[in-house]
């Protein structure tokens, strides 16, 4: 609970508490994304060799994100925070469409439909939390509005089943990967900013 001394006008949730919530959310979102990818992979992708094709990149590839620990440690925390915001924003639109389009997959199990909706909702919630954190860490800076546009809707609506299923596979693969990046970066940021790199 936030500590509100009587007469306090500036009663607010601590930065540590905001990070705790953000990390819990990002962990949950990545968990759901992994489960959804695995379910889809087992049910629709078997024997289609999608992994050999899943190297054509994700729509967020234009956002240059750290690829390993050294790179992540070299990047300034404000830039890493803005990258997290950018990746989260880049998923708003595709997640919204994913919720609708998965309903058209033949015999899509409820568990996949539910997860798509849940991820969409939790992603928005995490984005709100991150905007709050960024506002606290770099007050005054509105954060640059950098994000990657997604133009993959037509591929989720292709008539050819194999191509359509591959488009879903690739999107879910990218979601799983990006949600892991976000979770990993947030855990780094939390240790750096709240625990002085001594988690």
């Amino acid at each position: 609970l936030p500590i509100c001394p009587s007469g306090s006008v500036n009663c607010q949730v601590s930065l540590g508490e905001l990070f705790d919530r953000a990390v819990k959310l990002s962990h949950y979102i990545h968990f759901l994304s992994s489960e959804m990818f695995n379910e889809f992979d087992e049910r629709y992708a078997q024997g289609r060799g999608f992994i050999t094709k899943a190297v054509n990149g994700c729509h967020t590839a234009s956002l240059t994100t750290p690829e390993d620990k050294e790179q992540a440690q070299q990047i300034h925390h404000e830039d890493l925070l803005n990258l997290v915001l950018g990746v989260l924003r880049s998923w708003n639109d595709p997640l919204l469409h994913l919720v609708t389009e998965v309903q058209r997959i033949k015999e899509a199990p409820n568990t996949i439909l539910w997860k798509a909706a849940e991820i969409e909702e939790q992603n928005k919630r995490l984005l709100e939390g991150m905007e709050k954190i960024v506002g606290r860490v770099q007050p005054g800076d509105t954060g640059n509005e950098v994000y990657s546009r997604w133009s993959g809707l037509p591929s989720l609506q292709l008539a050819d089943e194999d191509s359509r299923l591959f488009a879903f596979y690739n999107l879910l693969h990218c979601l799983r990967r990006d949600s892991h990046k976000i979770d990993n970066y947030l855990k780094l940021l939390k240790c750096r900013l709240i625990h002085d790199s001594n988690c």
Binding site: N184, K187, L188, C191, R192, S197, C199
Partner: peptide, 9 residues
């Protein structure tokens, strides 16, 4: 395992 930096949990 570098758990201190948060790289690995």
């Amino acid at each position: 395992a570098d758990v201190r930096s948060g790289w690995l949990t």
